[in-house]
Computed example of a mutant assay.
Amino acid sequence: MTMAASEASASAPVDKGIGPLLRAWRERRRVSQLELALRADSSARHISFIETGRSRPSEEMVLRLAEHLDVPVRERNSLLLAAGYAPRYPETPLDDPALDALRDGMERLIRGYEPYPALVVDAGYTVVTANRGIAMLLEGVPDRLLTPAPNAMRLTLHPQGLAPRIRNLREWRGHLLAQMERQIALHRSDQLRALYDEVTAYPMLGDGADEEPAEPVPYFALPLRIEHGGRILSFVSSISTFNTPMDVTVAELAIETFLPADPATAKYLHTVAG
């Protein structure tokens, strides 16, 4: 499914009831009415009646269908509203005292990962917090890209950001854009779409050809190969999210950690941090 089709299918207006929204999510997941009914312990007839507006599902049924369609927490609230129910999931500001333990835990986690880079971003790729490993990689990046709210995609792909230092920019850029496309297909976000349009418009540096390492390394995942201090460092990234979140803010946080992809990178980071 193309991004345009995905976005269009997700934009069914709430004021038309839950039917169009439910159908859009079911079609996006490529699930038939019968398959969804079997998963949700219902009937294809009932699913059809909900989608056509002939039946109003219970609040429990809305949540059950959303669960089986893997609908994001924010969008589950939209489904509930469209069905005439109050939103179930709050959206607590990250600086709210109720999330003190969460913030402290994330800070401890990424600090404990040092000297390797790690950061936390929200659904729009705004950097919530980062450790000293990330700060090291960002040395020399203009302040205007770092304040007031740095954006991970902008920092990485902007021609005045990290892009000139990334030795496999074409591959890494393709990976990041594909990641954004998946997020756009998952979330109805004008902000995310605008960011995607912005970063895809950035010029590719040079001829766009990736610089191959002098001695090929059998990486176990696509690495980020980036220059720092006259050396080429190699990382593979891992993204973690929270299990069964009950808050929109928490559901949209992601912790990205960068693991050294070779012994030379690990040794260099420990030496610099030493």
Rank of each mutant, 00 (worst) to 15 (best):
residue 8 A to D: 08
residue 9 S to Q: 14
residue 9 S to L: 14
residue 11 S to Q: 14
residue 11 S to H: 11
residue 15 D to V: 14
residue 15 D to T: 15
residue 15 D to S: 14
residue 15 D to Q: 14
residue 18 I to C: 09
residue 19 G to C: 12
residue 21 L to A: 01
residue 21 L to Q: 00
residue 24 A to C: 11
residue 26 R to Y: 03
residue 28 R to Q: 14
residue 29 R to L: 10
residue 30 R to L: 10
residue 32 S to I: 04
residue 33 Q to C: 02
residue 41 D to T: 11
residue 44 A to S: 15
residue 44 A to E: 09
residue 45 R to G: 01
residue 48 S to F: 04
residue 49 F to R: 08
residue 62 V to I: 15
residue 65 L to R: 06
residue 66 A to L: 09
residue 70 D to K: 11
residue 71 V to R: 04
residue 76 R to D: 08
residue 79 L to Y: 12
residue 79 L to T: 12
residue 81 L to Q: 14
residue 82 A to T: 05
residue 86 A to D: 15
residue 86 A to V: 13
residue 88 R to P: 06
residue 88 R to K: 15
residue 89 Y to L: 04
residue 90 P to I: 13
residue 92 T to I: 01
residue 92 T to A: 01
residue 95 D to V: 06
residue 100 D to N: 10
residue 103 R to K: 04
residue 103 R to H: 02
residue 106 M to R: 01
residue 108 R to I: 12
residue 113 Y to R: 02
residue 117 P to T: 12
residue 119 L to K: 05
residue 120 V to W: 03
residue 125 Y to N: 09
residue 126 T to A: 12
residue 131 N to G: 07
residue 131 N to Y: 06
residue 133 G to E: 08
residue 137 L to M: 08
residue 138 L to D: 07
residue 140 G to F: 06
residue 146 L to Y: 02
residue 154 R to N: 11
residue 155 L to F: 07
residue 159 P to W: 09
residue 161 G to H: 03
residue 163 A to F: 06
residue 163 A to P: 03
residue 164 P to G: 03
residue 165 R to V: 01
residue 171 E to R: 07
residue 173 R to N: 01
residue 175 H to K: 13
residue 178 A to P: 04
residue 182 R to K: 13
residue 184 I to D: 05
residue 185 A to H: 10
residue 190 D to T: 04
residue 192 L to F: 11
residue 193 R to N: 03
residue 196 Y to V: 00
residue 198 E to C: 01
residue 199 V to D: 05
residue 204 M to E: 07
residue 204 M to G: 03
residue 206 G to N: 05
residue 206 G to R: 02
residue 209 A to W: 00
residue 211 E to A: 00
residue 216 P to K: 01
residue 225 R to I: 06
residue 225 R to M: 10
residue 227 E to Y: 01
residue 228 H to I: 03
residue 232 I to N: 04
residue 234 S to E: 03
residue 240 S to V: 06
residue 242 F to Q: 00
residue 243 N to K: 11
residue 243 N to V: 13
residue 243 N to G: 07
residue 244 T to P: 04
residue 250 V to P: 03
residue 250 V to T: 07
residue 253 L to S: 01
residue 258 F to A: 11
residue 259 L to G: 02
residue 263 P to N: 10
residue 264 A to K: 06
residue 266 A to H: 09
residue 266 A to T: 10
residue 267 K to S: 15
residue 271 T to A: 15
residue 272 V to H: 13
